[in-house]
Amino acid sequence: MSVIVLLLIASIIVASLFLAAFIWSVKNGQFDDEASAPLRMLFDDKPLNKEEK
């Protein structure tokens, strides 16, 4: 039985971490501009890096 209590605590802690991550991301402004983020990730790195390779 005590195992269940232990599991409960673990599960709620994990869930709380996700909640914290969510709150942090909202605070960080990640949901303010939904249009540019999906575009931004498609861009290659700077052309300079290509030359180095």
Partner: peptide, 14 residues
């Protein structure tokens, strides 16, 4: 920007 609704939503969901 008023983000309080989003926080409320997130916490309610959790």
């Amino acid at each position: 920007l008023n983000r309080s609704k989003i926080y409320k939503l997130g916490i309610a969901g959790f």
